[in-house]
């Protein structure tokens, strides 16, 4: 230690700063490109009530990526996809349905898939109010139904697919339908009886059951879909490869790190796993059948 101290004392100030930068302390010491914040898009997939969590997660990512990180929140998946296409954001946490939709040319690629309760999969829950006598989707005929987002898998595509599977036409089965653009608000709409039934991401419902049980207690699940690939994290294909690599490493590395594990714990996720595009084949198949009009 004595030797080390004397060496440090002798080197110049500039060298010290360089060393600190190399030590991945997120100090912006490189070119102007490096100063530009990395923009990360978020959607209704994530429960967005806990702003403190996002602040910590942002801090965590800034440290690992070595650049400022800004989260960009938009109401719909469509807006986030637009931002990805124009390059305003480089990363986003979207849903499986937007991911499988056809794009020419493709401008995104999978970055990571969250692992929830041991597997990178989730359901769509069909929920109604606790006092609602309905036991299946068929009982909701002529009622008010809440979707989350027209590009949501669990909150739009799957419930329509489930209804179409029974031979009904999703477009005129209900008296009214509306979009909440947020899974958590779908649960609230059901709990407050604004809608009679709704479709919600199983991950969000289970998360709320732990953090806001007073809301979920007023709802009940009458139907669970098959498992689908969990809403993935994607990155813009045209983004800086080095940035992509560092971001991916930071995301994957969360489970290896005490801070990262704490953040994962707050998200109620096990980890972020490397992507496997075949994970979304189920969604792709459902989307294809719905687009053909024949489930």
């Amino acid at each position: 230690m004595r030797d080390g101290t004397s060496v440090t004392n002798r080197i110049s100030r500039r060298t010290v700063l360089t060393l600190m930068g190399a030590a991945a302390l997120a100090r912006p010491v490189l070119a102007a490109e490096e100063e530009r914040p990395v923009r990360f898009g978020l959607t209704a997939v994530v429960v967005r009530e806990n702003l403190q969590f996002f602040e910590r997660w942002r801090h965590f990512l800034e440290q690992r990526v070595g650049r400022p990180v800004r989260f960009v929140q938009r109401r719909s998946y469509r807006e986030i996809m637009g931002l990805l296409q124009t390059g305003e954001i480089d990363f986003a946490w979207i849903c499986g349905y937007p991911y499988v939709q056809k794009r020419e040319p493709e401008f995104i690629e999978l970055m990571a898939v969250p692992v929830f309760q041991g597997e990178p999969l989730y359901h769509s829950y069909i929920i109604v109010h606790r006092d609602n006598p309905a036991t299946s989707l068929a009982d909701l005929k002529g009622k008010v139904f809440a979707y989350s987002d027209p590009d949501s898998n669990s909150g739009y595509l799957v419930p329509r697919y489930l209804l179409a599977s029974t031979g009904a036409s999703p477009d005129n089965f209900y008296r009214l339908t509306f979009f909440t653009y947020n899974h958590a608000e779908t649960v609230e709409a059901i709990a407050n009886r604004v809608a009679d039934g709704g479709a919600v991401d199983s991950y969000v419902w289970e998360f709320m059951a732990k953090t806001r049980s007073n809301v979920t207690e007023r709802t009940k699940i009458i139907s669970r879909s098959q498992k689908f690939g969990f809403p993935p994290l994607v990155m813009r294909s045209a983004a800086d490869p080095e940035l992509k690599r560092r971001m991916q490493a930071a995301i994957f590395g969360m489970r290896e790190d005490i801070d990262g594990r704490a953040l994962l714990g707050q998200l109620a996720l096990d980890s972020f796993s490397p992507p496997n595009p075949s994970l979304f084949d189920g969604i792709r198949a459902v989307a294809q059948r719905m687009n053909e009009g024949k489930p």
Partner: peptide
């Protein structure tokens, strides 16, 4: 837009 949820909120 028939945004019933938005109106309710």
């Amino acid at each position: 837009r028939n945004d019933y949820w938005g109106l309710y909120k």
